[in-house]
């Protein structure tokens, strides 16, 4: 089970979808789950109507959207065996209300459902388009948090086997996606640290998404800078300077951005330690919006093989 997280907008949904497509195409029975019910997953996968009940949207690729109410219903059916399920409506409403103040209740209903799919071995892999960086710890660590707060009850008993799955690094991992920008990178570094120091959930990969290509690379950078300054200082003869001035100014913007990126990526790599960082370049504008997932999926295939 892989939890794909990252700051909002960095490409979590796209990456989770691409990974799921790749995994399904390689013959693995794959479940991809959207945790916040926003419909972005359906969009990225070029499909519609992703609901709690999973549906096979392509060969071997199953998609579902998490919904804590449905999850609670399933949970009660499986574990509580209570005849009062007929009064489920008001019950769900009240529990939803309580869950606003009670830490981990909502999360455990969501994560519990995921762990259940893993425990039952219904799929070869479960890929989760998870909560953003700010909430992911509450999500993957919900069973541990809750078992500290709740002394008895069905939920408490349930937290044990869930933790067994979540804390087993051969079964569960977090994939942190970021863009090479300051705040997402800093959030990623913080998250890596928190996951390591505060939880027993391991990190599987760090992904830098939307990385810009080099305009000029390596030793050529100095030449580029030399050209810029010689045009600007008037040292270059007017004939080459006149055609180079505009283009150099324009590309200086991209070069500077790239320089900042490289710095941030180095910082990221240092913190990712031996795991390394997987790079995903910014995909070209002429590629259709909706096709971005499959483009990413094929890039990913080359990258991982």
């Amino acid at each position: 089970m892989l939890f794909v997280t990252g700051k909002g907008g960095v490409g979590k949904t796209t990456f989770a979808s691409a990974l799921a497509q790749l995994s399904a195409a390689s013959g693995k029975r794959t479940l991809v789950v959207e945790m916040d019910d926003k419909g972005a997953l359906a969009h990225a996968l070029h499909t519609e109507g992703v609901q709690f009940a999973e549906r096979e949207i392509a060969p071997n690729l199953f998609a579902m959207a998490m919904n804590t109410e449905d999850s609670l219903r399933e949970y009660i059916r499986l574990f509580v065996k209570n005849p009062l399920v007929s009064t489920f409506g008001p019950l769900a409403k009240i529990l939803d209300f309580v869950a606003n103040a009670a830490p981990g209740v909502k999360e455990i209903l969501a994560v519990g459902k995921l762990c259940w799919e893993v425990r039952e071995r219904n799929y070869d892999i479960v890929i989760v388009d998870a909560e953003a960086t700010g909430h992911i710890v509450a999500q993957v660590d919900a069973p541990a948090i809750l078992s500290n707060l709740v002394q008895v009850g069905v939920i408490r008993d349930q937290t044990r086997w869930m933790q067994d799955i979540l804390h087993d690094q051969s079964a569960t991992g977090v994939v942190v996606v970021t863009t090479p920008e300051e705040i997402p990178v800093l959030e990623t570094i913080q998250l890596l640290d928190t996951l390591q120091s505060k939880t027993k959930v391991s990190v599987s990969a760090v992904v830098a998404n939307r990385v810009h290509p080099d305009v000029v690379a390596g030793g050529d950078l100095a030449v580029f800078a030399g050209l810029v300054s010689s045009v600007e200082s008037g040292m270059m003869a007017s004939e080459p300077a006149s055609v180079l001035r505009g283009p150099l100014r324009l590309l200086s913007i991209a070069t500077q951005r790239r320089k900042r990126e490289v710095g941030l990526l180095e910082q990221l790599a240092t913190n990712a330690k031996q795991r390394g960082v997987l790079f995903m370049s910014i995909l070209e504008i002429d590629e259709q919006e909706a096709g971005i997932t499959s483009v990413m999926s094929s890039v990913l295939k080359d990258e991982l093989s």
Binding site: I76, V80, N82, L84, L91, I94, L95, V98, A102, V105, V150, Q151, V152, G153, V154, I155, R156
Partner: peptide
Amino acid sequence: VADRILGAR
């Protein structure tokens, strides 16, 4: 139900 699920405490 809530007592059973969450524990009374």
